[in-house]
């Protein structure tokens, strides 16, 4: 097993140089800051877990920070996302309060879901994060309904629907893309392609080189991008968001990246080599973005490091505060199941 099995023919590469000039400095700062926050959040999550402070499982997105940040950077504040079990990155990029998020991870009453959802199900409905689903592909049909409501209400909002490479082999993926395409719904389907569905490399579970080829079956635009290049992701998703917002319907954007950690806490990485993991670590999306910013003289080395260290401190603080929050009470749980 070597990295050669990664056959994806990335269609779009970075339009970095042009974008670096076009995008406001504040936007680029925001992107780097969010990517760093995601990285430190995940590392802190792992640390808390190792110290026995976390009850459940977790799915870390270390190495995939560019995908969530690059795509959500294209949105207006009122736009929506719906995502999946490896969802810390999307949640942070959509603007979640980090302490409230950490509280949810720790199962606290003050968490986003009052400790009922945990790592796999963080939702921030009022912030436009319509929630993470833990069943592979399960959020995609729900995304169709959210986008249908937007269309029926003549809203200008769009929805980003995230799922992994494994989800594109689920029937729900195919039913949903067909339906959304038929009705021209304002949704962008984004594949967080980390190349493995648990232990199964994409090359073992589908007979195509690029997941974006699947778009052709539904008559919608499809594009595979370098998911470790935050500006390439931004550029691809921006086009798809404009397409959706103008009433032309959905697109499928396949962001090819890699998860550095195992699938979940039980993963012993038996299905891939250490060399492969190391090779992808060398393609770190955060280090790469910093380098691009510095080389283009958008930021100095000390500026990027300042952003980095601020993010680290923010996460440390969030984790410290969240640990002091109260546990939920098991009384009255039945009363929360149904809405009045």
């Amino acid at each position: 097993m070597t990295a050669q099995k990664t056959k994806a023919n990335i269609v779009a590469t970075s339009g970095s140089h042009r974008l670096l000039k076009e995008l406001p400095h504040a936007k680029l700062t925001w992107m780097l800051q969010r990517m760093c926050e995601i990285r430190y959040f995940e590392e802190k999550a792992e640390d808390l877990y190792m110290r026995g402070l976390v009850h459940g499982t977790m799915h870390l997105s270390i190495g995939q920070e560019a995908t969530s940040v690059g795509s959500i950077a294209t949105l207006r504040p009122e736009d929506l996302i719906i995502h999946h079990h490896r969802g810390h990155g999307h949640t942070i990029a959509k603007g979640a309060d980090l302490t409230t998020m950490m509280a949810e991870f720790l199962g606290k009453e003050t968490g986003y879901c009052r400790g009922r959802g945990g790592s796999m199900h963080i939702a921030d409905i009022s912030g436009g994060n319509m929630g993470a689903t833990g069943v592979v592909g399960g959020g995609i049909p729900t995304a169709v309904g959210i986008a249908l409501a937007l269309q029926m209400r003549r809203s200008e909002q769009v929805l980003l629907s995230y799922f992994g490479d494994g989800a594109t082999n689920e029937g729900e993926f195919h039913e949903s893309l067909n339906m959304a395409s038929t009705w021209k719904l304002p949704v962008v389907f984004i594949c967080d392609n980390n190349q493995y569905g648990m232990s199964m490399h994409v090359s073992r579970v589908m007979n195509i080189a690029n997941i974006s080829e699947r778009a052709a079956s539904y008559g919608i635009p499809g594009q595979s991008v370098d998911g470790n290049d935050v500006l390439a992701v931004y550029e691809a998703v921006l086009g798809a968001v404009e397409h959706a917002r103008s009433g032309k319907g959905p697109s499928l954007i396949d962001c090819v990246s890699y998860r550095w950690r195992g699938h979940s806490k039980s993963d012993r990485n038996l299905y891939r080599t250490q060399e492969e993991i190391e090779e992808w670590k060398r393609k770190c999306p955060i280090r790469r973005f910093k380098k691009v910013l510095i080389e283009a003289v958008v930021m100095t080395d000390s500026e990027t490091e300042a952003i980095d260290q601020t993010a680290k401190a923010t996460i440390e603080h969030a984790a410290e505060v969240a640990q002091t929050f109260p546990e939920p009470s098991p009384e009255h749980m039945e009363e929360e199941v149904y809405a009045l």
């Binding site: 986003y112 879901c113 009922r116 939702a123 409905i125 929630g131």
Partner: peptide, 8 residues
């Protein structure tokens, strides 16, 4: 509804 803390 339950999983998201009663917020929908």
């Amino acid at each position: 509804r339950f999983m998201f803390g009663g917020k929908c």
